[in-house]
């Protein structure tokens, strides 16, 4: 009986652990300069987070706080100085700056990355048709990336991350340059992915989007502050699982940015 009583929590823990698609534990990163008389910049200091299947996680923080660095480390594009990242399943990464081949066409980009993901020709064609339809850029299939507008380039950037239907999506400001219709289409797509059990982490600056996230992490002084998005939407100040000390964060509106930005209450890097 005792064993029976103890089983459910164990199963529950195992299930919870198996639900995690990426877990970062106590990540530290400092950018050292190779040049003399220049300073090193400490960006992350014990950042800890996790993303579960079917969870949409927002990562927020002011400019230069290290969000993109964190995202690159989560994706595996950058090594952390300390800490560990564990991923389960396939990963789709949409970097802030589209890392695409400028002189390949949209079609060729799909083919090349489809090859990288191990997709066959039919799968690539299906993914291309689906994404160019949803994001509305079918007419640019034969256009070279360098001749695309910023918004269409970003659509392709996002599509390359999505085309193999990964278990984890890491999106670094994915809707930069999107028009309103595409912005809405993006969130509709994200909802579909959530329903399919895809874990999604999104770097965002837009405070009005907070309701769309299940969890928001704020990056401040190299630490992450986890906030469950609840009914009252009050920012909760509590340390991430690495038990780092944190300070309470406060929302504010940046007039220059036209509103919608959020940053920490104290100055930080």
């Amino acid at each position: 009986m005792t064993a029976d009583r103890s089983s459910p929590p164990e199963h529950s823990e195992q299930r919870a652990a198996s639900d995690i698609v990426v877990a970062a534990d106590s990540i530290a990163k400092t950018y050292d300069s190779r040049l003399p008389f220049t300073r090193s910049v400490e960006v992350l200091d014990g950042a800890t987070l996790e993303v579960r299947r079917g969870e949409v996680v927002g990562i927020m923080g002011e400019n230069g706080s290290g969000k993109s660095t964190l995202m690159q480390i989560l994706a595996g594009a950058l090594d952390a100085d300390a800490g560990a990242v564990q991923r389960a399943g396939t990963v789709g990464w949409c970097p802030q700056e589209p890392r695409l081949y400028d002189r390949l066409t949209v079609d060729e980009t799909f083919r090349l990355f489809g090859q990288a993901y191990g997709m066959d020709d039919d799968e690539v064609r299906e993914a291309r048709d689906w994404l160019t339809d949803v994001l509305d850029f079918e007419e640019f299939a034969d256009r070279q990336v360098r001749h695309l507008s910023g918004g269409n380039r970003q659509k392709l950037n996002l599509s390359v991350a999505l085309m193999h239907e990964p278990d984890l999506l890491l999106l670094d400001e994915p809707y930069t340059g999107f028009d309103w219709e595409t912005f809405l289409a993006f969130w509709e797509l994200t909802e579909q992915l959530r329903d399919r059990g895809v874990g999604v982490a999104i770097i965002s600056h837009i405070i009005n989007e907070r309701d769309r996230f299940d969890v928001v992490y704020e990056l401040h002084d190299g630490h992450l502050h986890r906030q469950e998005i609840g009914a009252d939407d009050e920012p909760q100040s509590r340390p991430t699982e690495g038990q780092v000390d944190c300070e309470r964060t406060t929302p504010f509106v940046d007039d220059d940015a036209g509103g919608g930005q959020r940053a920490t209450g104290e100055g930080s890097r």
Binding site: A77, E97, R99, F113, V160
Partner: peptide, 15 residues
């Protein structure tokens, strides 16, 4: 120079 950043992404994608 023209391919380094994209090559990183391609490598992550599976190459």
């Amino acid at each position: 120079q023209s391919s380094q950043a994209a090559d990183d992404r391609l490598r992550l994608a599976g190459y």
